[in-house]
Design a protein around this nucleic acid. Structure first.
Length: 448
DNA sequence: ATCGGCTCGCGCAA
DNA sequence: TGCGCGAAGCCGAT
């Protein structure tokens, strides 16, 4: 495995004792560079290896919808790891404290974790690094080209990022080695995890129900990928922006929880039969836009607030603060889909009912929140609250960048000015009408 | 249906 | 310093 996928978070001489992978963003046993690196270290040292996941009692407003999806995926991962003689421990509580406690109790020699650009994860890792006295590594198991290598700075747009990413892609888009059976057994007794009890014990919002149209876990993710390649890829370019066509890959919930690796998807799509145009359209989204989202959050501490917008966008939004808003809605009115716009309401209901709004509608939805609230700050806040509450793939760099693109011109350019939006790109009901059958979409959502 | 204008700033060529 | 062009558009003219 390429050593460039690994960074040191803490330099200390290694101690004897097991290698532990603190799994967080990449919740899978297969195709996981952080786990593969951990096993490589453990074999070199002839030491036991374990995977640890720390379940935070609450996480950025997540509900049972997301926790349920995650826990079922983790249960499967526990089994896949067990098949390789790698124990899986589920801790509960504040991650810095619990990880530190685990390391001390089990006399761990080296700690490895996966990469995540979000603020809360950085804080957790810093908390752990400050407490421990062993080497601590971070592996980018989520991106194909490690985030810190793809570009050393905040990229202005996709066109500035694309050539940098592509230059590195041939080098990093390689096959995964197989996870091996681990031959140095864990010494202590391994307690069975009672998954039902853990779910019952959660103190998260139970009002946003779990969804049934998509099955959680790595196995289901692979089936979804096969289905996408077999049935949808060949018309991806023409169908993906029509909310009435089932043209999207539906892989984002799995990608968000790391139940499948983007690198695996890219390898399979490249191998697949089909037109280059469709493959390229999909790979553009999977690679360039996804990894650009990590770039944005990694290099911009204000990735989820107004200060993170580009200067031209802040300036133009400031100049239009006093513009008259034709409609004004509260969070509660948005949440319950009580606007005057039947298309907007349908998009909101799609998200509430299924946990996944169509990609085209996500743009329209967020831009209308800007149009119908008192300030861009309020709009951004409402969009993030709703996205994180209902979307299976909420709390993801992709989500933050999506609303920042819609409301704050991030990775976009200036357009002809108009009220409220200023030079931020506008989208209209009429425009949607010219692209797809709005009534058919509304009908479909009402009948879910 | 299709086209041009609208507008900003990065990155590269000169 | 100039120039081409970009993550998904809109609008009005033809």
């Amino acid at each position: 495995m390429k050593k460039e996928r690994v960074r040191r978070l803490k330099e200390r001489p290694p101690k004897p004792g097991p290698v532990v992978y603190w799994m967080s963003r990449d919740q899978r046993a297969d195709d996981n560079w952080a786990l593969l690196f951990s096993q490589e270290l453990a074999f070199q040292r002839k030491s036991p290896l374990a995977v640890v996941f720390c379940l935070a009692p609450q996480f950025l407003g997540a509900t049972i919808r997301q926790y349920g999806f995650m826990l079922k995926g983790l249960k499967e991962t526990e089994k896949n790891l067990k098949d390789k003689n790698i124990p899986f421990f589920l801790l509960r509580g504040s991650p810095p404290e619990e990880i530190h406690r685990f390391i001390a109790q089990n006399k761990v020699g080296i700690l490895v974790t996966d990469f995540d650009p979000l603020r809360i994860k950085k804080t957790w890792k810093k908390g752990v690094a400050d407490k421990i006295t062993i080497p601590f590594y971070e592996v980018d198991a989520h991106n194909i080209v490690p985030c810190w290598l793809a570009s050393p700075k905040l990229e202005f747009a996709a066109y500035t990022f694309r050539p940098k990413l592509k230059r590195r892609l041939t080098e990093f888009l390689d096959e995964f080695p197989k996870l091996k059976k681990h031959s140095f057994p864990w010494k202590e007794k391994i307690r069975e995890i009672d998954w039902n009890e853990i779910k019952k014990d959660l103190k998260v919002d139970g009002n946003v129900k779990e969804v049934e149209w998509i099955m959680p876990g790595s196995m289901a993710a692979k089936q979804m990928l096969e289905h996408f390649i077999g049935k949808k890829l060949s018309s991806y370019d023409s169908k993906r922006n029509d909310p009435n066509q089932l043209g999207q890959s539906n892989l984002s919930p799995y990608l968000h929880f790391g139940q499948i690796s983007a690198q695996r998807i890219a390898l399979e799509v490249k191998k697949a039969k089909g037109h280059e145009k469709d493959k390229e359209a999909y790979l553009e989204e999977l690679l360039v836009r996804r990894e650009l989202s990590d770039n944005f959050c990694f290099h911009n501490k204000d990735y989820d607030n107004f200060r993170g917008f580009p200067d031209w966008a802040k300036k133009t939004l400031d100049e239009h603060r006093k513009d008259k808003r034709e409609f004004l809605y509260s969070l509660q009115q948005f949440e319950t889909a009580q606007t005057h716009d039947d298309l907007w309401n349908a998009a909101q209901m799609e998200m509430v009912k299924t946990g996944k709004m169509h990609g085209y509608m996500r743009m329209y939805w967020a831009k209308k929140i800007l149009e119908w609230t008192r300030s861009p700050e309020e709009a951004l806040k409402i969009a993030i609250i709703l996205n994180d509450r209902y979307e299976l793939d909420g709390r993801d760099p992709n989500g933050y960048v999506g609303v920042a693109w819609s409301i704050g011109g991030v990775h976009d350019r200036a357009w002809f000015p108009r009220p409220v939006f200023g030079k931020i790109r506008f989208m209209s009901y009429k425009g949607a009408q010219s692209k797809f059958d709005i009534q058919a979409y509304i009908f479909k959502i009402n009948n879910l």
